[in-house]
Design a protein around this nucleic acid. Sequence first.
DNA 1: ACTGTTGGTCAACGCTTGTTGGCAACGGTA
DNA 2: TACCGTTGCCAACAAGCGTTGACCAACAGT
Lengths: 191, 191
Amino acid sequence: MADPVAPVRRSSEVTKGVILAAARERFAADGYERATIRSIARDAEIDPSMVMRYFGNKEGLFVAASAFELRLPELGALPGKHIGAVLVSHFLDRWEQDEVLTALLRVGVTNAAGAERMQEILRQQIGPVAAGVCPYPEQAPQRALLVTTQILGMAMARYVLRIPAAVAMDRDEVVAWLAPTVQRYLTAERP
Amino acid sequence: MADPVAPVRRSSEVTKGVILAAARERFAADGYERATIRSIARDAEIDPSMVMRYFGNKEGLFVAASAFELRLPELGALPGKHIGAVLVSHFLDRWEQDEVLTALLRVGVTNAAGAERMQEILRQQIGPVAAGVCPYPEQAPQRALLVTTQILGMAMARYVLRIPAAVAMDRDEVVAWLAPTVQRYLTAERP
DNA sequence: ACTGTTGGTCAACGCTTGTTGGCAACGGTA
DNA sequence: TACCGTTGCCAACAAGCGTTGACCAACAGT
């Protein structure tokens, strides 16, 4: 006789983790609306109702999936002369380590909470650096924004739209080209 | 007696135009999946079935709404020294004149056709310029890509995510800051 | 005046979505 | 052993989606 398919019984924490991993993957690949609770549940090999039980609703699931520690290195203490290269390199790392930032970017385009969180992260990561090295402190927010646009644009091209020429560039090339731009946005006296 | 709500009867071309305008607005504001045929029809004050009649299906509607003449100025003939400023200025114009580019960007994140069209436009607009002024012709595609990332990033920040600091910058400031970056990507000997 | 075409509405279809509530089995504890 | 919270599945709901086909009224040409 075949077993009547006894369901696996894990700890709830483990299950939550599996769901979150699947959610991150789906959100990153499909964006907010096309990443359905059902598809995420299928990936996690669990019933959709469990997702609801643990995370309340879809928005709650997304918030949980995109909440993560930033663990940014001590950028403020780094030498100002290479801050551009360090920043670009840092963000390439973050984007390639896990899918959360890609998910955030894809979701942020259509979902307000995602957009908010994306901005918050960029502000927290770039803001202090700009405040530290910008020659005119009152210009720091604008300088930070400029840096943000360049980093955002490369991320869009490379990880979201996957423009072939952007994917083809290797890490060092990207850093070599973008670092001077970022450096100039942060430290130039004027445009 | 009140009239039994006699439906307005316009020419089909006019109606198509109204639908397309509503579609562009919705796609630009909501992205592909959240811009529903029903909501577009409601904006155009017409029955959803008319949208189907004229454009076949939702994908067809999007293609029609995002098909437009590029009418790029003769960039190739312009002085190479200011090509950066001209390019940035040109794209700011295009993005602010109508909503198609914003729609394309929002949709492109989740819809393959949108992503394809966005890339095609960027390639057509930036590619020839890069080929014209890049010191090493074989590097032209890479240089064009770099320009694309900077323009894409500013567009994301300013028109899609609407980051306050990006919206607050005025046109001339944006051009002043971005132009040297674009200029360098196009004409620098090496990073 | 008749007729075919055109611009328009209405009602429904099949499907998918987020979400809910009930029920079964397991496992620790008393 | 009897209990009870936990983990899980199942079936269903209401709402919204893209899409379809039947039908109606105004027009244009003869």
